[in-house]
Every structure is written in C-alpha cells, then in structure tokens.
Design a protein around this nucleic acid. Structure first.
Lengths: 145, 145
DNA sequence: ATAATTAAAGATATTTTTGTCTTTAATTAT
DNA sequence: ATAATTAAAGACAAAAATATCTTTAATTAT
C-alpha cells in the first residue's frame, strides 16, 4: 500500500504524538527503536515531516528531539501522506491510467470508486491524536517486534 | 497502490481478454502499444503470467501471440495479483507491522479492516472477463493516451 | 527443408527506493 | 566560554524496480 518511508513516517508520527510533548521531546534513537525502523533513514523522513509545513516540531541540542504541538495533533493523518508525497492512493487510477475519470473511466473505475472514497474519508477524518490515543489505551500496538 | 509492473499486468490481461482469442492471438507489439507500456518490459511481465500456472496462453512463431482461454477468462482479477506477487495490499498491515492482527491490532487496524475486506471482495469476485466486457461496450477505456 | 515470424530467455542499463556514514549547526548545561 | 548533546545536511552505498537490447527457440508458411 505505502512505501517503507511512508510506513515509518506514519508509525513515527503516531509514536511521537503518543509519547512526546514540548516538555518531553523524543530522540531519534528512541523513536527508531520503538517503531523498529532504521535510525538514519528515519531521521531523513522526520526531516521531511519537520521541514516547511512543519507537522512535527524539532529542537537541536541537549534535551532536544521531536514532538507534536497540540495543533499538529489535531491534523488529519492525510497530512502525513501529503508531506511524504504519497497521496497517490487517494487520487490515482488503480490501473495507472492518466486519463481515467468519471467521463472516461477505466474498467475498474466504478467498482473501485467507493473504496477510494472510503480511503479518503479514513485518512481525512482521522486525526493523528486519535490514533495516538488508541495506542495509549494499550488495546492497540505499534511496535514491530 | 500497485507497482508499474502490476498495473501493466492488469491492463495487458484485460486487453488480451477483450481483443484476443485462440483464433486471433495478439502480439506483444500490439499489446504494448494499446495499453501504453514499454514493450520489452511488458514482454517480461507476460512471461510471468504465462509461466507455470498459465493464466495467459502464448504460442511462438508466425500468427503466434497471446490469448486467454475461456476458462482463464472466468478467473478472478486477484489471480493476476497473485502471479505478480502483489497480494500484499489485500493481506498486509497498513503501517507495515508484522505482528498486526485481530489480537494485536495496529492503531489503524480496526478502521482499515472493512476497507481491506472490500478490496479482497473486489479482486476476488470480479472476473477478468467482466472487466474485458465493460471495456468492450465502449463505456469504459483502457488506453493510456 | 528453408526462411520468416514470434515469444522466451538472458544480459545489461537506468532509475528509484532504502539504508548508512560523516560532517555541520544549533542548543543546552556546566 | 566550553564541552556535550542532539537534529540537519550531505555524501555515499546497496538493493529493488523499471526498462532496453541481444540471442535463442519454437512455430508456421512457403
């Protein structure tokens, strides 16, 4: 479904939202260990999520690290996909046709349409906070191993 | 959603099902042109779909080419994914967690579950023939450009 | 039988994705 | 101020996906 990079982005963001705060920032080492991802690669990915738009906040130096502002926590999961440039699954044709549309649908268009709409709804209406809280209850797990 | 290879596999198979038959086999040149894919790469992919299991039938030599048997036409689209080793989207965790399951769900598991089931249903219950016939009516398009 | 045609098989090239390592810059604690 | 700590930035490496080209084998038409 998603690239490794986006999987790590989703897991890392949820973990940071759950365990981190402005008072208690999380280091890259802890994050990568927690979600079971390669450290340096994950660092690159967090840079992407930290830059420009700034979904994730970061501070360098001792006691530095990553956290999510209250405002960022409210943002939809789709924002992660957007920053990772992987919204294709919500937008593109299943068969990869450039011109597939309502007027010129591909053979799977109609059948797939409603599933795509549910995917959009899922990623648009679910906040990062919500997923983090589900993890917090312990009813749900994020660790890979 | 899918790799380029699988997109080409789906498009090529639908095209062959629609335009080809044992009496009128289709050459790789025609197929690649029709679906807008790189010829040699598409040839490799068709080899995969032709080998072993044999979803697609092929014959070498003059008047040779590719076609789908009546029986193959009835098979579900999922068989294409299976031969392309890309059933992951129907099976794997959205966040890429190895241990994600009903008992140890990831934070998105519950929300995503029903979408995944619809995807399985779509690919399992839709036959290649059905998609080919939709294309045949002209109400639907498969060409990329 | 021979030549022509077509897919299969194999080798190679390019691009993208994934991953690591090193250096730099910012921040904090002392 | 200085040293320690941490993310940012950049260079590099490995693996996988995508794509092309060449040779071989099968089949058919002549």
């Amino acid at each position: 479904m998603f690239s490794k990079a986006t999987e790590y982005a989703l897991r890392a963001t949820i973990y940071i939202a759950q365990k981190g705060s402005e008072e208690n920032k999380l280091g890259i080492e802890e994050i990568a260990n927690a979600i079971g991802s390669p450290k340096s690669f994950t660092a690159k990915i967090l840079q992407k999520l930290t830059a420009s738009n700034g979904l994730i906040s970061s501070v360098r130096g001792p006691r530095g690290g990553f956290y999510l502002s209250k405002k960022a926590q409210k943002r939809p999961v789709r924002d992660i996909l957007h920053l990772m440039e992987e919204e294709g699954i919500l937008i593109k044709c299943v068969l990869g046709l450039k011109k597939c549309s309502e007027l010129t649908p591909c053979p799977m268009h109609t059948e797939y349409k409603c599933i795509k709409q549910q995917l959009i709804h899922l990623f648009e209406k679910t906040s990062i906070e919500k997923l983090a809280k589900e993890s917090e209850t312990g009813s749900v797990f994020i660790k890979i191993k």
